[in-house]
């Protein structure tokens, strides 16, 4: 028996559910990100450490320029909330100062890595052919360089590293991963119609990369920035921990930790565990954010 077709009722809601206003990909990603509890926690933790390091010293005034052996290794008290270190500096104030360098290096090294990576990756992906092959073998070679060893060797040579030089050194050896990611994105993007349209309209390669390819590859790049920051903050703490980081009177968290290891046996816990917790929590916060961003950008995982 043939079934009677229902006449189309335009007034009724469509079967897929209610129709809402169209949201752009970025709005969807933002909604997804903010609905992720870990992401919000990570964001709050990161904001806390940024405020702690950069605004903290304005509120909590400490002497971070002259050493005082009479004040060395004082246990936490009202005058020194987290005690003092082996040079008589207030530990909490020192942590704020160390946080400034660690966060600055993390951010700056990530920017250097992403900039170099995006540049090399997009040129390789767009132009292709021999240049692509050459650039990718170059990237492979860089990926095979034992990162920490080379960074340490260069850091030792620099002698008295600063925030700027350490960031440049770490960034200069971290670009291969973003380069590969961006190249992969560009390889799929360049076959799309809008790129053809832009080419037909007369865009050169430079304009194509800057105006069309990179903005579309931005999702991958943003996710990678957070992980680059994680790696850079860890790298600088390793370098500092081994004693080749910033020099006195500058300090970073790893450096601060390594100066206090000798006091572990004496029970001066305030010199070791708070600053270690700073590194761990900052890295964890960035990991939360990075994971959440990756999930938010991943269309396959997105709930609509």
């Amino acid at each position: 028996m043939a079934t009677q077709l229902q006449p189309l009722d335009i007034g009724r809601a469509p079967e897929g559910g209610d129709v809402g206003p169209v949201q752009t990909g970025w709005q969807l990603a933002f909604r997804e990100f903010t609905s992720n509890r870990l992401a919000v926690i990570g964001f709050a933790m990161l904001a806390f450490f940024i405020l702690f390091s950069f605004v903290g010293p304005l509120i909590y005034h400490t002497n971070q320029s002259t050493t005082s052996l009479t004040l060395a290794n004082v246990a936490p008290s009202g005058a020194h909330l987290l005690g003092t270190d082996g040079n008589g500096f207030d530990e909490l104030g020192r942590m704020m100062r160390g946080g400034q360098s660690s966060l600055e290096i993390g951010a700056f090294a990530a920017l250097v890595a992403i900039f170099l990576g995006a540049l090399i990756g997009s040129v390789a992906g767009l132009i292709g052919g021999l240049l692509d092959g050459f650039l990718m073998r170059f990237t492979d070679a860089f990926l095979s360089v034992p990162f920490l060893f080379v960074v340490l060797i260069v850091a030792v040579k620099v002698g008295s590293p600063t925030v700027l030089t350490l960031s440049l050194v770490i960034g200069a050896f971290s670009w291969p991963v973003p380069a590969r990611l961006v190249r992969g994105e560009v390889l799929t993007l360049r076959e799309r119609d809008f790129v053809l349209a832009a080419r037909t309209a007369g865009s050169g390669s430079g304009r194509l990369i800057v105006r069309h390819l990179l903005p579309n590859a931005l999702g991958v790049v943003i996710v990678n920035v957070t992980f680059q920051m994680v790696d850079a903050i860890l790298a600088v703490s390793y370098v500092g921990f081994l004693g080749f980081g910033l020099h006195f009177p500058n300090v970073d968290w790893g450096d601060q930790l390594s100066n206090s290891i000798g006091f572990l046996e004496d029970g001066y816990w305030w010199q070791i565990f708070p600053v270690g917790a700073c590194i761990v929590l900052t890295v964890m916060a960035l990991n939360f954010i990075g994971d959440a961003l990756r999930d938010a950008m991943d269309v396959r995982l997105r709930r609509r």
Partner: peptide
């Protein structure tokens, strides 16, 4: 559970504090 790695130097310091100084079981 999702695990995040901790920098090895800090993890090592915690282990030394707990299992070598607080509870003297292992050597540091």
């Amino acid at each position: 559970f999702i695990t995040y790695s901790m920098p090895s130097f800090f993890l090592g310091l915690i282990l030394i504090q707990v299992f070598s100084f607080s509870l003297p079981i292992f050597g540091f």
